[in-house]
């Protein structure tokens, strides 16, 4: 399995990673190698095998519906890159 430069660009876009043109080729080569490694999986016989999402055979625990968190906006926004009037700022979003 090898990835074309176009596929690399598409994946980088989907993952929101800027991709300088000179990096497309090396990434294409490296990712193709990784996918080749991963390709060994196709040889495994897994016809009747149930997928394993998790190592633990447990079920989800439920939390009581109670408000336990207090307002810590000031502390949380002290580490934010851009805030105004309590809102996080981003470049204008056009819907």
């Amino acid at each position: 399995m090898s990835l074309s430069p176009e596929q690399i660009k598409q994946v980088a876009h989907l993952a929101r990673l800027s991709l300088p043109p000179e990096k497309v080729e090396p990434y294409a080569r490296q990712l193709s190698n990784i996918l080749e490694l991963v390709g060994q999986l196709s040889n495994a016989a897994t016809d009747d095998v149930a997928p394993m999402a998790h190592p633990l055979d447990m079920v989800q625990r439920l939390r009581p519906d109670a408000v336990t968190e207090e307002d810590r906006r000031d502390a949380f926004q002290a580490i934010a890159p851009a805030v105004e009037n309590g809102l996080y700022l981003v470049p204008k979003v056009i819907e």
């Binding site: 989907l14 993952a15 990673l17 990434y27 990712l31 991963v38 495994a44 997928p51 999402a53």
Partner: peptide
């Protein structure tokens, strides 16, 4: 690199061949 590999293997059309397959081999 890992973000891109991960994005790729979860993508539409590749999920079963990679992610689901890996989960089965994991078992």
């Amino acid at each position: 690199r890992r973000i891109m590999v991960g994005t790729y293997v979860l993508s539409h059309g590749y999920y079963d061949a990679y992610y689901l397959k890996a989960q089965k081999v994991r078992r």
